[in-house]
Amino acid sequence: MPHPDDVGPVPSAPLPPLPGHVSRGRLERVLRRGEFAVTAEINPPDSADPDEIELRVKPFEGWVDAINATDGSGANCHMSSVAVSALLIRLGYSPVTQISCRDHNRIAIQGNVLGAAALGVANILCLTGDGVQAGDHPEAKPVFDLDSTALLQTIRMMRDEGKFLSGRKITGPPQVFVGAAENPFALPYDFRPIRLAKKIAAGAQFIQTQYCYDIPLMQRFMTRACDMGLDKQCFILAGVGPLASAKAAKWIRANVPGVHIPDEVIARMEGAKNQKTEGKRICVELIQQLRAMPGVSGIHLMAYKQEESIAEIVRQSGVLSGRTPWRRDLVATTQAVESQGAL
């Protein structure tokens, strides 16, 4: 059963407030309880059909604590992250709304933060965003009015001081758990922990990293982060994802900004009889190694076009340790029990 703190009377409404929590969402509760969190990500549809959202998340319902709604990831156009989040909330799920600085200036972004929070968004991930050259509209104008660190400062100011960047008052501040990304696998390696500290100082409460395929590099990053005490100041979720084939792995390495896949991983994929199964096996092994790494508070699964494999990977990895994240039918059961009256 899901933890009672994670179940409210109405699944689509914010949970009753808890002391010491900035948000009324499930993700913050899971992390603050010290449970190993699992988040997953969906790429929003190229469609105005809301049913496509449900189709994408249904296969892993009950296996993740929150679902990231990406914001034009890879600089490709999709349904907006705020709209996807609102649709997920309608179904009862907990979204992590990603906000990238590439497509909006500070006026639009702050408006979106208020709008998202009003629609029930409890978690926001602040990103700089991929350059427009990476996506399907390379001729577009990149905005980058803020960077991810400035965006963190902005949202924290909105939430804690109840003010816009301009200083103007916000009557109902957004109660959001704020996160950021980090890439321990990109140069300069020794600057990455400093950058993490900077993001925490700017307001980051949780971190979701880029895909991890290189445990020694991750270990190097985490050792430094733990030495600096950063694991105590924010929750670090390691990014993972199954590779579909050796060919896909090579393509990702060459074309997706910031993804580092060591040669050994590609060699192992090439040597496998069934590459897709091997990709999942590697992912499960990585999750188990990350689970054992001091300072890692959870994993973030990015299974692009392989959403159907998320449940299987989480189950096989055993990281939930028998725990059941929120899901619709269990809430229905809880409500059914409650409706029979108090003991």
Partner: peptide, 28 residues
């Protein structure tokens, strides 16, 4: 190219060059 004032983005290439301009060393 992203006008970042607080550190490098996550797209820095393995050779230390820019995600956007592959021939340019990353500013950060």
């Amino acid at each position: 190219p992203k006008g970042l004032r607080n550190g490098p983005c996550g797209g820095v290439r393995a050779n230390g060059n820019c995600e956007v301009h592959p021939a340019m060393p990353c500013v950060w």
